[in-house]
């Protein structure tokens, strides 16, 4: 499904990685490892199509992701360092808005139940500005649950989450992969994934 050939990435004058290849199919997860500043985030941004690699190309179902923006945009969901949430809007409004921007309808009940599932039942109608960082992270993850994407690209999804939040994310990952979904994630924490054995990829060893 997702393949990347000969990716290399430069930041400033530094070469972060070179000739990186990867392949991911339905029902597989990939953990990207590497020390700070070795290009994990850069790799994820290349894979989701935000940055162009210095060389190489990323393909989704055999089609370059630059050409397949329409399908890839629907089937891929990216959770970045920043939460992608407007502080002026309530969690509910945020979810409905991001769904509409991606061309999906989202009814209130689905959104509410996703927020409730992530433990945000009490703050659905507060402006996001008053939520804590961890709570905002949960709103983002609720958005991920309702996005209906096949491929999740998660950049440090556990940042700011408490113990129960971490457990929730682990559960989400297991469920998603069990249902045939695909995940690419970076994390500094060890994930408790039960039977799920993710592939791993280490970036920046040669640097």
């Amino acid at each position: 499904m997702l393949t990347a050939n000969n990716l290399s990435c430069e930041r400033g004058e530094r070469l972060l990685f070179r000739n990186l290849n990867l392949e991911l199919n339905e029902g597989e997860a990939l953990l990207v490892r590497g020390a700070n500043g070795h290009g994990k985030t850069s790799l994820l941004r290349i894979l989701c199509g935000l940055s162009a690699p210095a060389s190489g190309e990323v393909f989704w179902c055999g089609e370059s992701i630059r050409a397949a923006k329409e399908t890839y945009g629907k089937e891929m969901a990216y959770v970045a360092h920043s939460n992608g949430i407007k502080e002026e809007l309530t969690p509910l409004e945020n979810m409905v808005l991001s769904a509409r921007l991606c061309g999906r309808g989202l009814d209130m009940e689905t959104a509410e139940s996703a927020l409730a599932q992530l433990g945000l039942a009490r703050c659905m109608d507060l402006p996001s500005r008053v939520l804590s960082f961890g709570q905002r992270r949960r709103v983002t993850l609720a958005g991920l649950l309702t996005a209906g994407a096949l491929l999740w690209i998660l950049d440090e999804p556990l940042t700011g989450l408490d113990v129960s939040g971490v457990a929730m994310v682990e559960q989400m990952i297991r469920d998603h992969v069990a249902a045939g979904g695909m995940i690419i994630a970076t994390t500094h924490h060890a994930l408790e994934l039960g039977d799920l054995k993710p592939k791993t990829l280490t970036v920046g060893e040669s640097a």
Binding site: G49, E70, H81, S82, G84, I85, K86, S98, L101, C102
Partner: peptide, 15 residues
């Protein structure tokens, strides 16, 4: 850009 919504919009299926 600061809150990350710009990136999400850029990744949407539209031009």
């Amino acid at each position: 850009h600061r809150d990350g919504t710009l990136e999400q919009m850029m990744l949407s299926p539209y031009s």
